[in-house]
Design a protein around this nucleic acid. Structure first.
Lengths: 186, 186
DNA sequence: TCTTTAACGCAAATGGTTTGCGTTAATCTC
DNA sequence: GAGATTAACGCAAACCATTTGCGTTAAAGA
């Protein structure tokens, strides 16, 4: 069920990939998810189901692929002028996106496929945090430790969203950041 | 696709539920998972597929139900005589179980179904930690904050297992616990 | 431009999922 | 305890998602 490495990057392949992704978005927005079928997606995309099966393997892999593409950042995190506010802005936006209904659905898709998709998403977060620290160093500010932020800010946020055992509010995110600042090694 | 509340708790219902759960275990151990089918499970359990579909709705819900049942603790955490060692022992065992191949598979099943299953699992962890703190208080020791442990020890462990972006070693777990102890409010 | 081959469309075959209906057995009432 | 009620099961047919073989299209290479 592995997503094929696409050797052909030409026009038709790219066109079909795009059409299928768009179809998933269109259907995913309308229906209650979870009951979307490959034939439905194929019909909307204007391709035959077998094309989707051959290219993505199964529905879950396709959904995971679309989810990762949607989670992939299109721009660097906002530059607010200081590390602290950069980090705060990023975490706030991250928590809001992930805890939203679509965010939860995307995470489900990413995890259910069980491939390299999750680590790709982890990479996105890592990259953003690295960008913010690099920016801080360029400013002459003392940067934070990326792993520290992932372990003690990002991880708790993801945990509570996944397990649904607590509301992830902006206040909660603030408290996680505040706790981080009160630590020695930073 | 909701798991039906079982009104009938009598002999036949319970017998079938048990047989189906056993069948999933038997098949899950052998095959590479992910390609287990409902008809297969039904054949091993000695029931018809329609029985499984009517009772659990679909394969993912069944797998999630089995996963939660397997994740449900059968005993309280080991009493080692002191809070610190109790907590250490629990976290070590927790991390080892969850990071194992079966642990990862169980978590996948729990999350892919997207129902109340994840919060049930969170409850298990919570309960165990609460038991350890209660035990500590009974001993006259200063207990830890359960939420604190979940946010800064359990959450990072789960995060790295799910995203597969880092090895979760006993040493890593120790460092998380050590960090917790170096904090003011505890 | 010609050759090679990956990717697609089509359609038939396969097998997982759903559903109606009769039967079994657990629960309730007397 | 015996009979009535109804949830849950088994069976089988219908439905539909998935797979697969084969001819065709179009991208990549010579």
């Amino acid at each position: 069920m592995a997503l094929k490495e696409q050797i052909r990057v030409g026009g038709r392949s790219a066109r079909i990939q795009s059409a299928v992704h768009d179809a998933v978005h269109e259907l995913g927005a309308l229906t209650t998810r979870n009951q979307v079928t490959v034939p439905q997606i194929a019909a909307v995309a204007g391709v035959t189901p077998s094309t989707i099966y051959r290219r993505w393997g199964d529905l879950q892999t396709l959904l995971a692929d679309v989810a990762v593409a949607r989670l992939r950042p299109i721009a660097d995190p906002e530059d607010t002028g200081a590390v602290e506010s950069d980090l705060r802005a990023f975490i706030d936006q991250f928590a809001e996106e992930m805890s939203s209904p679509v965010g939860r659905a995307l995470m489900r898709d990413v995890f259910s496929s069980g491939q390299s998709f999750p680590s790709q998403c982890a990479g996105f977060t890592c990259d953003h945090l690295a960008t913010i620290t690099a920016r801080a160093q360029a400013r002459g500010e003392t940067p934070f430790d990326v792993d520290e932020v992932i372990d003690h800010v990002v991880a708790p946020i993801i945990y509570h969203i996944l397990y649904g055992d607590r509301e992830v509010t902006p206040d909660y995110c603030q408290s996680l950041l505040a706790r981080l600042r009160s630590l020695p090694a930073m």
